[in-house]
Write a protein that binds this DNA or RNA. Structure first.
Lengths: 124, 124
DNA sequence: GTTGACCTTCACATCAATGTGAGCGCTCGA
DNA sequence: TCGAGCGCTCACATTGATGTGAAGGTCAAC
């Protein structure tokens, strides 16, 4: 599929799809005329990228973690140098902290909404 | 405490502390000479803000959710208009999606690291 | 009373993620 | 064969979160 179709399928502007490519997050083949050629797997990958971006993970980190996620059974970096591994560990820990922070705050919002709702139904 | 001390205590630049204030996220008292005066509660609040920012929540949303979190037992917006409540619900749902995305990817990284580690100990 | 370490505001700079548009090349259907 | 609609690159604009620095006020210590 070409960029317009992927854009439709992912709800992502063409501009951004090209940007992700520039950032090394996706690598479409090129058609003879220079057009980008995507396949179905790219739809999932773009969703992945956008989820991570929305969760505050910057592209330079996404670039690092994506290779580990395609095919969890495969080793994509069999000779990954220790500093890459420890960078991954750091990022994993950062993600854990984010999850905790988001969860805590989300639960507080939920409590708040529950309280407001309860009181509204009692008082109103 | 003044801005320098809060900066120390939170590991946040003075510039950013002023920025958060400008964004309506904290509201320090002013001393007679114009200096900002903070108290201990601001340390937690700044940590909260930074956690949310790191998790991809923009300041305009943080501004909205902070009032619900100070004192979960209190109703801070007893007359919150329905559109604020539904905005909060939306944000809660967005946070849930972020948590899911982060968790999924973090677990994949963990699996990856485990696999690399296992193989290293088998092969090496 | 001057020095130094704070504080203030204001303003311009940067970086990442995006938008927007110009100028041009394919390609397909009328 | 021409125009619409897609693609390409290049480049400048914007927004949000930050850095940095200038010009100046406050205050404590010496």
């Amino acid at each position: 599929m070409r960029i317009g179709e992927l854009s439709e399928a992912t709800g992502t502007s063409r501009r951004l799809l090209r940007y992700y490519e520039e950032q090394g997050l996706i690598a479409p083949r090129r058609d003879r005329n220079g057009y980008r050629e995507y396949d179905q797997a790219n739809v999932d990958r773009v969703a992945q990228i956008r989820g991570l971006l929305a969760a505050g993970v910057p592209t330079r980190i996404i670039r690092r973690i994506l290779p580990c996620l395609d095919n969890p059974r495969d080793i994509h970096l069999p000779d990954a140098p220790p500093e890459v591994l420890s960078a991954l560990e750091d990022e994993r820990d950062r993600m854990t902290r984010r999850v905790e922070c988001l969860t805590r705050n989300r639960d507080a919002i939920t409590d708040y909404l529950d309280t407001v709702c309860t009181r509204a139904s009692v008082n109103g």
